[in-house]
Design a protein around this nucleic acid. Structure first.
Length: 802
RNA sequence: GCGGAUGUGGCGGAAUGGCAGACGCAGUAGACUCAAAAUCUACCGGGGGUGACUUCGUGAGGGUUCGAGUCCCUCCAUCCGCACCA
């Protein structure tokens, strides 16, 4: 009996070997392949089996590419600024710098248990001044390019996190982090003009090999629409109100107009009779939170008392105020066509405003019980009547433009990025407020602007950051005129560092540049990015924006950061419940590694289910892969020294194995790769029982398995008598001819139902096959044969009529 | 409301339009053992039949096809995203 497989000893052995001699070393003669994980924020609770999955996938892919002859860039770092780290620090009563350092050390230890080929020489930490120097530098460059600007307006405010939030951080009216309902707060903010890149961010999605879902989420988030701005003159006044519409074809049906309560003209439109009511409505709207605004299904509104003139037909239309119109989209005012817009219909019904149908499916006016939003024939529209509404929709903007009452235009849902946070644990925004010169950036040579140590880092809740209390830090002099001036006290959001960290890995010790031209050209951009889907419109959009900006100012020579993206599914606890400390269903990898070994856990992480879907963790399932490893070990131990001449069947098995594993791996069907290993292992055991299995097949299996289970891969490879490591091989190639069977089992059917199975040579002719098929079914064919079908190697189907 | 994904044994899941349930977990029986664990062997969707067999079966209902889990249409359920963006 051979020595049983001892995972503890063998895994320790190979970890030591790799520490001394890593399997992936820098080699500029090889093509590079950059495989990146979304870097973690170092929380105090550590990793669970769900976090492992993404890291295992990226390591398997990296090692596969390594065997295909690439030099692999596979770095890891820490997204250590931001609310999670700071909230943890406040909870535990320690300084964020200290708790962050401890958590990084802890998680690094856990990540090393995965045995991934991370290159720790490339490690970055967003809280390291040598790193955030460049985060600040990018901000200064954006400021100089006019892309960072100050603005005071009511922003999304999380009362629990006590900070402002970007639109992307508000989910269903609640804070993305803590779930607290978001309120509005009027604050002076630093903004980044991401809208200046809206078109490029939208169009360049086409270049990306990303999941369609993520591309769609980004394109919906950018939300480009095509339409027209149309000017309505206010009756008895020289005021003009512009509205934005995507349906200029319905202009004749506009029977009223609605302005957002925040619209600059809202108050002025009130007449003495309506003034009180209008002011009340405006006040009430200003008090509403975004959650209230979402939840109020019933439309509210107030008539201003003024009328506008529809420019196409000179009709008088009443001007209303309602909070269903958003102030910061389009012009903050809309023309309302109740017959062809659901919201306008609802509003018109409630306030008894006339409804005029201008589009009919078949050209005939009908009684409308709801808005008709589809296309059709234009009616009741003067000289436009009779046209096809879809065509008119495209023509109308030009007609309006010629009339001098508007123009063709586009709009975006995307808003500029609220970039300042009223919190301590972030990069200080490197701006100095000078009473004479205004906003002046900290000179580039003075960066990094260090985050000062403060005694109280708790958020103040006042809209000021804790830095505001540090007089000696806040008070400074203007770098331009030397006058006394004050520092900006807001900090950057967590997304600041993560928007560009992947660029820094390849040149993380460069004191003079964010990344050198040579290294950027040699190693960037990222070829494969692996992480969860939760960042679809946050980190992934921001990173694209940063990359495009850095490309524009000549730092890098590409404008998309991540060529291919893979979103792994989550691993949940029993009954699909998300793993969390409070639910008590967190499965830690530590015990599993002790009992089953790293290789078993790596295999099981992939075997649980398709990598792109969420999976349920079943504790007992890992026994299956553990048994597989042991059976493989026993097979190798019992057969490695037997000289077995490979038979045709063994050679066929070997090539089929390479083919199956490679095609499944290439299509990222990693769960079926693992089941493939089990299948082929079982087949090799069958051969072994009948006399033996040849060494080359065992070797091939070992190389294929090595990226998935590297310890046992190395160990078996060395047991098979090799001095050099298993990763010094190249990925095996299959030969199509060698994997072809001589005979195939063919199902014989009558009317599509299998009645028998026969073995046929693969080169049999159709006639011979059908003859053999009919021969074996001769007792069962009752009636006349109407059709005979033969699909080589698969089925014979005899179609019979009774 | 709009958009997307998913739906297959007791469970996780496999199936270029061609033998549904690969692979694994759990389970049943047997071998080994004083015994247990581990391991090995066999079985393992439902109904019917002693049996070679037969019949039903991939969320529901239609359709296309010699043949449908797979393609088309209409629903249902679950999950995710967006949500007054004019």
């Amino acid at each position: 009996m051979a020595t049983p497989y001892n995972h503890r000893e063998i895994e320790r052995k190979w970890k030591n070997v790799w520490d001394k001699k890593p399997v992936n070393v820098k080699d500029d003669k090889k093509p590079k392949y950059y495989c990146l994980d979304m870097f973690p924020y170092p929380s105090g609770s550590g990793l669970h089996v769900g976090h492992w999955r993404g890291y295992v996938i990226s390591d398997v892919w990296s090692r596969y590419k390594l065997l295909n002859g690439y030099y692999i860039i596979h770095p890891m770092g820490w997204d250590a600024f931001g609310l999670p780290a700071e909230n943890y620090a406040i909870k535990m009563g320690v300084h964020p710098a200290k708790s962050t350092a401890e958590n990084v050390a802890n998680i690094k230890k856990q990540i090393n248990e995965i045995a991934a080929i991370y290159d720790w020489d490339m490690e970055v930490n967003t809280t390291d001044p040598e790193f955030y120097k460049w985060t600040q530098w990018i901000f200064v460059k954006m400021f100089k390019a006019g892309l960072a600007y100050e603005k005071e307006f009511p922003i999304n405010w999380c009362p629990s996190c006590k900070t402002g939030l970007a639109n992307e951080e508000v989910v269903n009216g609640a804070c993305e982090r803590c779930g607290t309902a978001v309120t509005k707060k009027n604050l002076r903010q630093w903004m980044l003009k991401i809208t200046a890149y809206a078109d490029r961010l939208l169009e360049d999605l086409n270049k990306l090999d990303w999941p369609e879902k993520v591309k769609k989420m980004q394109s919906d988030w950018i939300g480009k629409s095509y339409g027209a701005e149309i000017e309505f003159r206010v009756e008895n006044s020289d005021k003009v109100i512009a509205v934005y519409t995507t349906r200029p074809d319905t202009l004749y049906g506009a029977t009223f107009m609605v302005l957002a309560p925040e619209h600059e003209m809202a108050k002025d439109l009130a007449t003495p009779e309506t003034q009180k009511e209008v002011e009340e409505y405006i006040f009430k709207a200003s008090m509403k939170s975004s959650v209230d605004r979402l939840q109020d299904k019933e439309k509210t509104g107030v008539f201003t008392g003024s009328y506008a003139i529809n420019p196409i037909n000179g009709e008088k239309v009443p001007i209303w105020l309602s909070d269903y119109v958003l102030a910061d989209y389009g012009t903050g005012a809309i023309m309302c066509v109740p017959a062809h817009d659901d919201r306008d219909f609802e509003f018109a019904k409630k306030f008894n405003i006339p409804i005029i149908q201008v589009i009919a499916k078949d050209g005939k006016e009908t009684e409308l019980t709801e808005a008709y939003t589809g296309a059709g024939i234009v009616i009741n529209s003067g000289e436009w009547s009779g046209k096809d509404s879809a065509i008119l929709k495209k023509e109308a903007p030009e007609i309006i433009e010629k009339m001098g009452v508007g123009r063709k235009t586009t709009n975006y849902k995307l808003r500029d990025w609220v970039f300042s946070r009223q919190r301590y644990w972030g990069e200080p925004i490197p701006i100095i407020h000078c009473p004479h010169c205004g906003c002046v950036p900290v000179p580039e040579e003075e960066l990094p602007l260090l985050l000062p140590a403060v005694e109280s880092y708790q958020p103040t809740g006042t809209g000021e950051s804790p830095l505001a209390d540090m007089e000696e830090w806040v008070n400074t002099t203007c770098p331009v005129c030397g006058a006394p001036a004050k520092r900006e006290t807001n900090t950057m959001p967590q997304w600041a560092g993560s928007s560009w960290y992947f660029l820094r890995y390849v040149d993380n010790k460069n004191k003079n540049e964010l990344v050198s031209k040579e290294k950027a050209e040699a190693y960037l951009p990222v070829d494969m990015y692996i992480g969860g889907v939760e960042h679809a419109v946050l980190h992934l959009l921001y990173s694209r924006f940063y990359t495009k900006f850095l490309n524009d100012i000549g730092v890098i020579n590409f404008d998309e950061p991540f060529h291919k993206l893979f979103n792994q599914g989550m691993i949940n606890g029993k009954n699909g419940i998300k793993m969390s400390k409070s639910k008590g269903n967190v499965v830690s990898p530590d015990d599993l590694i002790r009992d089953y070994g790293c290789d078993s856990l790596r295999l099981y992480e992939l075997f649980v289910g398709p990598p792109e879907l969420d999976s349920e963790w079943d504790e007992r399932g890992i026994d299956g892969v553990y048994r597989f490893i042991n059976r493989l070990w026993n097979l190798v131990m019992e057969n490695k020294d037997k000289p077995v001449k490979p038979t045709k069947e063994m050679i066929r098995l070997r090539h089929k194995m390479i083919y199956d594993i490679t095609t499944r791996l290439e299509s990222f069907s990693l769960n079926t790769v693992i089941s493939g290993f089990m299948e082929y292992n079982n087949k090799m055991i069958e051969f072994a029982k009948k006399g033996g299995i040849d060494k080359e097949t065992l070797e091939t299996f070992t190389i294929l398995l090595a990226p998935f289970a590297p310890h046992i891969g190395e160990e078996i490879w060395s047991q098979l008598g090799h001095e050099r490591g298993v990763f010094e091989n190249t990925w095996p190639k299959y030969d199509e001819n060698a994997m072809k069977d001589e005979e195939k089992e063919v199902a014989v059917q009558i009317n599509g139902k299998t009645k028998s199975v026969i073995k046929l040579p693969v080169d049999v002719t159709k006639e011979e096959a059908l003859k053999a098929g009919k021969e074996c079914l001769k007792d069962k064919i009752a009636g006349t044969i109407v059709k005979e079908i033969y699909v080589p190697g698969r089925i014979i189907n005899i179609v019979v009529k009774p």
